[in-house]
């Protein structure tokens, strides 16, 4: 159904505003699971003149309640650290000191160039207003280039973004985030997508196989996120609490 809808929307060279909102809605819906979501992710950060940062983390999502946990499991020295999103708050927990801290949307997850949005469910149609730029080529793929402006109430890391959407499949292949000043902050690539059938949703759930984030401010800094495994079965109801994350280090 999604493909049909996309084909209809993308058949026109210059989609209307409504069409673009539909495109964003489709992108969001594809990635959303009506039940829970759990994944094992690999995060690698490369920075000039520094050693690589490498993590493995579990990401837990309950999209219906806007809840998210990122729990670092490797390396050993980082195990037990984590982030918890509850409503509009992002908390960070460090078991070494047993303290929680409230962090902002711009928090660099684990000191990498990734932020909370890279691991959370997609809310493009809720958070941004789209406008069409052009049809372009990205490598060997034909793409729709659209601009996004954050809605006033949106709790997002960057107020403006550009998206390049694959004309054939409707998947986002490239994204650029901009600061208020118009300065390009980061470029993100989604070279391939996986889809997995969800029993609770009775449809496929899409997730990027890997994400490449280029830090445009700190030149030479690049973060790769690989979503290694995804599980869509229901999670323990008490998982999205501070107590649960703390219990991992007791």
């Amino acid at each position: 159904m999604f493909t049909l809808l996309f084909s209809a929307v993308l058949a026109f060279a210059a989609p209307s505003a409504d069409d673009m909102v539909k495109m964003l809605t489709v992108i969001d819906d594809r990635q959303q699971n009506s039940g829970d979501y759990k994944s094992l992710v690999y995060i690698e950060n490369k920075q000039a003149e520094k050693s690589d940062l490498v993590y493995q983390a579990l990401v837990y999502r309950r999209d219906a309640d806007d809840k998210l946990i990122i729990l670092f499991v490797k390396p050993q020295s980082e195990a037990g650290k984590g982030y918890l999103r509850l409503d509009d708050n992002l908390f960070m927990f460090d078991p070494t000191v047993g303290k929680w801290e409230r962090r902002t949307e711009r928090e660099r997850i684990g000191g990498t160039s990734s932020n909370r949005q890279d691991f959370d469910q997609s809310r493009l149609h809720e958070e941004y207003t789209p406008s069409f730029v052009a049809e372009e080529k990205l490598g060997s793929y034909a793409v729709q280039h659209i601009k996004l402006a954050a809605k006033t109430a949106a709790d997002v890391a960057y107020p403006a973004a550009d998206l390049w959407i694959d004309k054939t499949t409707g998947n986002v292949l490239k994204r650029q985030d901009f600061a208020d000043s118009g300065r390009l902050m980061r470029t993100t690539y989604y070279p391939s997508w996986n889809k997995l059938y969800s029993e609770s949703k009775k449809a496929d759930v899409y997730f990027p196989k890997e994400i490449r984030i280029i830090d445009e401010v700190e030149k030479g800094t690049q973060t790769t996120v690989v979503i290694q495994e995804v599980d869509l079965k229901p999670l323990d109801p008490n998982i999205f609490t501070k107590a649960w994350l703390e219990s991992k280090s007791r």
Binding site: V73, A79, G80, K209, K248
Partner: peptide, 20 residues
């Protein structure tokens, strides 16, 4: 191909009970 269909993975269940 941009998209790939993957099958359900169950190995993550073991990780839920992991403590550090």
């Amino acid at each position: 191909a941009v998209e790939t269909t993957v099958s359900e993975i169950t190995t993550l269940e073991n990780l839920d009970s992991m403590t550090f």
